[in-house]
């Protein structure tokens, strides 16, 4: 069970959060101009890697805020947590 440092509330139990899948997939600004394949890429394709992954998390049973998390899926180490709109850490 992770201990997640919500950027708005502080450290809370994982049971208060829900994971929203891969982060930094931006909704296309002009969906109508995309081909089926390009739209499918946005709609369906998600990475599920072993190793460092960028994820969206929501403090669902808390402040209801979304934020981003860098997590190593192989050992569940959380490397960074940052707010929506902030740049992901380089390392």
């Amino acid at each position: 069970m992770f201990l997640i440092n919500c950027p708005y509330c502080g450290e809370r139990d994982q049971s208060e959060f829900s994971c929203g899948g891969e982060a930094h997939i931006v909704r296309p600004k002009q969906p109508t101009e995309l081909s089926d394949d390009q739209w499918a890429e946005y709609l369906f394709m998600r990475k599920n890697i072993k190793g460092v992954q960028f994820e969206r998390w929501n403090h669902a049973h808390g402040c209801r805020k979304w934020f981003n998390m860098v997590r190593d899926t192989s050992n569940d180490k959380i490397h960074a947590i940052y707010k929506m709109g902030e740049k992901p850490p380089v390392e």
Partner: peptide
């Protein structure tokens, strides 16, 4: 509600 919040906050 959470879907709408998601779009509001992230997109």
């Amino acid at each position: 509600l959470s879907k709408l919040e998601d779009y509001l906050q992230t997109e």
